[in-house]
């Protein structure tokens, strides 16, 4: 292993508090690939961009800035594993760096808690670090695989806030991207394309809380397209999407009477499986949808 890169690991809420296996998988798989995820002590909710952004964008800026400053004080870039957190932390960091007026206003508030946003760090989604050949790259991931996910078909759900709005990101196509498929195929699985791949999971913007049936109806449409494509599982890089697809299937069954049994994995859980972590070590028993049928294919 060459030089190890250190990042402040921003956890958010859903990964540590609902899918802790995703948290431990991220730490352990990254370690093998030369990335050291250091706890970002005292971090809070990012805060949820749908809820806080809807109420008052100024509060959203200030709350996200507090989390960023914690990492600035450690002198480390932030890595995170949730698209919602990415929107808050990446976008606020970017806005505050480039908009002095906004930065001054936020710092006025942060002064009350003896903090100051300085703009000294960058924010990354772990998935983009994994894909970046300068940092990890597909080849290195492939080389780390001990248990190839051979014979499985996996549908990728990109989620929204990782790549959109395109102009405020840097990850290329938002209509037909393929890079997470490459990450999936590096694990030995087959990535399947499906209709309307870039559609939202339905959870964001506070809609899951505001109108659950509406939100699940969007998820249901996506699941139909995914089943149609013959996928054995869905993978995503966002615990909120994961929650919507995984627990959402239980709710869909309750509300609409449709049962899918489609296992849902955060990419880092799949990476953990492929690197040889056991289902128990990944906390897959905490998933709402039984992952056994999928695991049987690979283990």
């Amino acid at each position: 292993m060459t030089t190890e890169r250190k990042y402040a690991f921003f956890l958010g809420c859903i990964a540590p508090n609902r899918y802790p296996g995703s948290e431990s998988a991220s730490i352990r798989t990254s370690k093998k690939l030369g990335i050291d995820l250091v706890p970002l002590e005292g971090a809070s909710c990012c805060p949820a961009p749908g809820a806080f952004g809807s109420i008052d964008l100024n509060v959203w800026y200030a709350m996200a800035a507090r989390n960023i400053v914690l990492a600035e004080q450690m002198g480390l870039d932030i890595a995170l594993i949730c698209n919602g957190c990415y929107k808050s932390i990446y976008e606020v960091n970017h806005k505050l760096k480039h908009n002095k007026e906004l930065r001054d206003a936020v710092n006025e508030v942060l002064k009350e808690i003896d903090m100051e946003f300085k703009g000294t760090i960058d924010v990354w989604h772990l998935a983009e670090l994994l894909y970046d050949p300068e940092i990890v790259g597909v080849e290195k991931i492939r080389a780390s695989v001990k248990v190839p996910l051979k014979g499985t078909k996996i549908a990728v759900h990109y989620g929204c806030h990782l790549m959109k709005p395109k102009k405020e990101r840097h990850m290329g196509s938002t209509e037909a991207p393929h890079w997470i498929e490459e990450l999936v195929e590096a694990l030995g699985a087959e990535a399947v394309e499906y209709r309307n791949k870039m559609q939202c999971c339905g959870a964001g913007g506070g809609v899951r809380g505001y109108d659950l049936a509406h939100s699940l109806d969007i998820t249901n449409e996506k699941l139909q397209n995914i089943v149609e494509a013959g996928a054995d599982a869905v993978t995503e890089v966002c615990p909120f999407c994961q929650l919507q697809f995984d627990r959402g299937q239980i709710e869909i069954e309750e509300k609409f009477g449709i049962r899918y049994n489609m296992p849902v994995f955060h990419y880092n859980e799949l990476l953990g499986l492929a690197q040889g972590m056991s289902p128990e070590e990944l906390g897959l028993d905490l998933h709402a949808i039984n992952t056994e049928p999928f695991l049987k294919k690979v283990l």
Partner: peptide
């Protein structure tokens, strides 16, 4: 069971940070 701390190393493990969050929210009377 997974070998993680019972509470994540966030405000959950370090509740002393919550005061700062409350100050920000109170600043906006939210």
């Amino acid at each position: 069971k997974l070998g993680l701390t019972r509470d994540p190393p966030t405000t959950h493990m370090y509740p002393e940070y919550i005061k700062g969050i409350q100050k920000i929210l109170d600043h906006y009377n939210l």
